[in-house]
Each structure stands twice: as C-alpha cells, then as structure tokens.
Simulated assay, not measured.
Amino acid sequence: MRVEIWSDIACPWCYVGKARFEKALSAFPHRDRVEVVHRSFELDPGRARDDIQPVITMLTRKYGMSEAQAEAGEDHLGAQAAAEGLPYRTRGRDHGSTFDMHRLLHFARERGRQEQLLDLLYRANFAEERSVFNDDDRLVELAAAAGLDADAAREVLSDPDAYAAEVRADEREAAQLGANGVPFFVLDRTYGVSGAQPAEVFTRALTQAWGERPPLRPIDGGSVPSADGDQVCGPDGCAVPGH
C-alpha cells in the first residue's frame, strides 16, 4: 500500500501531522508493506527567494491578526508539538520560500534519503535558531547530515531548474485531487485524510484502506500460484516442476 503525503516545510501542522501519522504507522500490523512518499506543496508558491520575515510578522500581515493573536497561535502550536515529543520555538523563527527545499527533497528521494532530509528540515525550521531560508550553505549542511553528497546537493541548489518540474507536478496533482491545504494524506489513491488528525484517525484510515485493497487477479486464465505448485518459491524452498 502506498501513502502519499503532501506537505510544506513551513507548515507547522505538517510537522505535527507527520509525527501523528508515524505513531499510527508504527503500530500498524502491515507497516513493512506500506510505502510512504512525500510530495511537494508550497503554502506561498509565489514568494521571492529573498523575501524572509519573522513568522509573527507574516501572520499579522497575511491573516490580519493582532500580534497577540499570532503569538497565542504559536503558543498553541508549540503545545501541540510538545504533546508529540517535538521541539518547537514559538518565537524568533523566520518564514520564507520553501521551493529550494522541495527541489532538494526530490533529489533526496532519488537517492533514498527523502525521509531523513525532511525530518532534518522540519527540525531545523521549527526548533533551531539558524534560519533555513535563502541559505544554500545551511541546506547543504542538512543534506549532508541526511546522508547525501554535499557537492551534488549544492549543484542542485545552484541550478534553479533542477527538480523544479517535479515540484510543480506535485502541486498540480494536489490541486487535481482537491487539496487546498496541507498536510494531505492519500492512501492508495482511494482515501484522503486532510489535516494533522489524531493518530487514531490515521489508524482507522490505514486499516480501512488495507482491508479494501482489491484481491490479486490471475492473468492468462491461470490461477494464483500456491506454495505447493510449480514455479513458486515458499518458506520451504522452490518447487521443481515434475517432482
């Protein structure tokens, strides 16, 4: 079963939702047969690379909040993150374009290190003092910490076209699926879960999606091979035709 997760590194509910989903997945009996793929979604896709501002300032300008309301919202998010065991700085964080980070995540996916890099990007953005925005050196450091080649990561960041099409394709697909916010979870292209739902909601979704997977269909008029038939390998070895 495949679970696709559309998210943005600047999205605090994506940070919390990932932890809640992973809690449900860790207890799922078939977790070893679940493939998780992270897909790109920018909350602010038109933002210039050098347009960086404090989170509180961004919230007051974009949503018309008072500073007190913005700070209260950050405090609430900090409490939600803490409940999941996640560090979260409620003051002093920056907000900016995440496009380069998404490009780097596609590069990491090709090399089997997407999950590791995403975790490091989330932690760097929400828990650490040094900003991750418009800082190639910082992103290269995180890529190397995730097990990627630092020089190759820098090459990706220096080429604005590298993996740009992949990011945009993910975002178009999200729109086609009806996702207008993140996190957005899609299970086997059959079920969708929107938002950082409690772990028990993800548990129900995983269970239902797994239980409703279509049965294996034989082709060419044959039957599904069994462990005691020809051309099959089972726990006791491989069958030898005619023996």
Rank of each mutant, 00 (worst) to 15 (best):
T60A: 07
R109Q: 14
A68R: 14
A165E: 12
V36T: 12
V224F: 11
A152V: 09
S158C: 07
R123K: 07
L117S: 05
A72C: 09
R130G: 02
P29R: 13
L43A: 02
Y191C: 03
Q116S: 07
F99Y: 06
L121D: 03
S223Q: 12
V232Y: 05
Y163E: 02
N180L: 06
R61P: 03
A152M: 05
P160Y: 08
G229F: 14
R103E: 00
A164S: 02
D135A: 09
D151V: 10
F126I: 03
P235S: 01
A27N: 12
A227Y: 04
D220T: 03
R123D: 10
P29S: 14
A150Y: 00
F41C: 12
A79T: 15
V224I: 15
D75V: 09
W210A: 06
V182T: 10
G211A: 13
D44H: 06
P215H: 15
F28T: 10
Q176Y: 00
V37K: 02
E22R: 05
R123V: 05
R204H: 11
R111L: 13
M58V: 10
G181Q: 05
R130C: 03
R91T: 14
R103P: 01
S66V: 04
E74F: 00
E84T: 12
E212L: 15
A124V: 12
F126H: 11
L86H: 07
D149T: 03
E212S: 14
G192I: 03
Q176H: 01
E74N: 14
C238E: 08
P29A: 12
A209C: 11
E42I: 01
D220M: 00
C238A: 14
L142P: 05
R189L: 00
H30S: 13
D151I: 02
T90H: 15
P54T: 03
A209I: 08
T57L: 06
A227I: 15
A152H: 05
A150L: 01
